[in-house]
Write a protein that binds this DNA or RNA. Structure first.
Lengths: 123, 123
DNA sequence: ACAACCGTATTATAGCAATAATACAGTTAC
DNA sequence: GTAACTGTATTATTGCTATAATACGGTTGT
């Protein structure tokens, strides 16, 4: 019911508020959250992740603007999404990662098969 | 002789000074520069890339600290490296990209073969 | 030797992410 | 109904990246 954030390990490669949004989208894609599930309160999550409440608020605000979160003053914050949105996020997230990988290895002159082999080697 | 930076397209995903260092390393890996080749002066490169001279200085300083650049007051800035360093950079750069890709697609539950297929699809 | 370059250094300013400390009004649970 | 929570908002401060404007002394080419 209440989404678990204990597996979220923050890094310094991107803003924290974006990592939080991404974490939720990946949970959607993995069917680890369902439509109507509840997010922890801003204060609770800020304590769990040991980041400032304002940073959490920024993440939640972003999700509201994307239309996957609804919250009311004094009330719970609930996820809101349908299957077609999950499909869209899944495709988006995977394509972005593949394109990033491909772009970088192309810079170093790899062929498609070398890029594929490199994935297998490092898996 | 003088390293060409015209192909370097800056983005906002990482600090500019780091993108410059990475660009040089990739040129090393691709044999597009040789030991002893010259980098443009700080002022010239700052004009070419349209960034502040201090940003270029930060990049060059970093390369000096990594031991691939030597520069003297009033004189040219020269690349300095051997084959084993190229091999090291090649391996480092490729492994980092593969690991990043693998880590992300694993988060979304892909198998190795699905990850491989995704690379082929987007190539 | 002198002008035009070089590398190097310093100080100030701006924007963004994040922190810190509050404050206020709405809701929920007992 | 009251206490303990909620979302929301504001102001100040810090650190990092980048810009801006200089300044100084070394090297190079003519």
């Amino acid at each position: 019911m209440v989404v678990d954030f204990s597996e979220l390990k923050l890094n310094e490669e991107s803003p924290i508020y974006m990592q939080i949004v991404r974490f939720v989208k990946i949970k959607m894609v993995n069917r680890q959250v369902r439509d109507g599930d509840e997010l922890p309160s801003r204060r609770v999550l800020s304590a769990v992740l040991e980041v400032n409440p304002n940073t959490i608020q920024k993440a939640y605000r972003l999700m509201e603007e994307e239309g996957i979160l609804v919250s009311f003053a004094g009330s719970k914050s609930l996820l809101q999404f349908n299957e077609s949105l999950v499909d869209k996020y899944r495709k988006e997230l995977l394509t972005v990662e593949a394109e990033k990988y491909i772009e970088e290895v192309k810079k170093m002159g790899l062929t498609a098969e070398e890029a594929v082999a490199l994935v297998r080697e490092n898996w």
